[in-house]
Design a protein around this nucleic acid. Sequence first.
DNA 1: GCAGAACTTAGAATCATTCTAAACTGCTTG
DNA 2: CAAGCAGTTTAGAATGATTCTAAGTTCTGC
Lengths: 135, 135
Amino acid sequence: MSGTSPDYAARLREAGLRPTRQRVALARVLFGAGHRHVTAESLHAEVKATRIPVALATVYNALNQFRDAGLLREVVVAPGRSYFDTNTGHHHHFFVETDGELHDFPSDKVTIAGLPTPPKGTKLSRVDVIVRVRR
Amino acid sequence: MSGTSPDYAARLREAGLRPTRQRVALARVLFGAGHRHVTAESLHAEVKATRIPVALATVYNALNQFRDAGLLREVVVAPGRSYFDTNTGHHHHFFVETDGELHDFPSDKVTIAGLPTPPKGTKLSRVDVIVRVRR
DNA sequence: GCAGAACTTAGAATCATTCTAAACTGCTTG
DNA sequence: CAAGCAGTTTAGAATGATTCTAAGTTCTGC
């Protein structure tokens, strides 16, 4: 067995989070294989399948903490439907309205020009572009 | 009394909606004065203040119908928070994350170049740009 | 090892939204 | 204009997602 398996505990510690059994399990699923889009429910199901006991509330807690720590980005596409994206770099989204699928696309080629300056007293947080398509 | 007061009943009928007492009351508040951003709750409060009895469920129904009829546009900015915008023309949004305010800005000057083509089998519905800022 | 803080948990609570079933109302026709 | 009926409204229950609570559990530093 064994190649280099990432040290999730260390990753969490760097983010200021205590590496508990369930946070490590969640991190493993989230960051173990390419970029992902998950909901609390879907992630909960996946982690339970690894036979590590995790309460749904813990998944919510962890997702919020990971997001606050910059490990995840939250994408809100439809009312009552919030995805967490493991890709925290610059990129935008396709959202297939008819079946709720979300896909990344890189922002390399995309240029947005002519945005007005933010209202005074505010500073830019980020610009979300969601390309909505339907089947 | 009286200047030219818009005929909301006719407007609703054109949209294929029966002009009932409460739909007319809602339309009056929504379309009576410039562009607006409302939530079901905020609109409900406003209409009740005009002394026309409306149930919250009716406000939800009407907002959904108005949206489907193209009289409104729905903007999803944060989980569990959905706004309806009376401006259905091309424009984008500022969202002040720290206090939940939403502001329009015209898309005249804004150009988005380099968007990839939609996944095959899908057709473009619309492109949302949300500029998130914080105080 | 141990204390204490941080974390997890089951289940209750909350919030926004939708559903249900019954009462009502606008519209069409006679 | 009376009748009838489909389309609407309504209060309240139901749902679904998320958060809170209070109590038990587990990390971490000493």
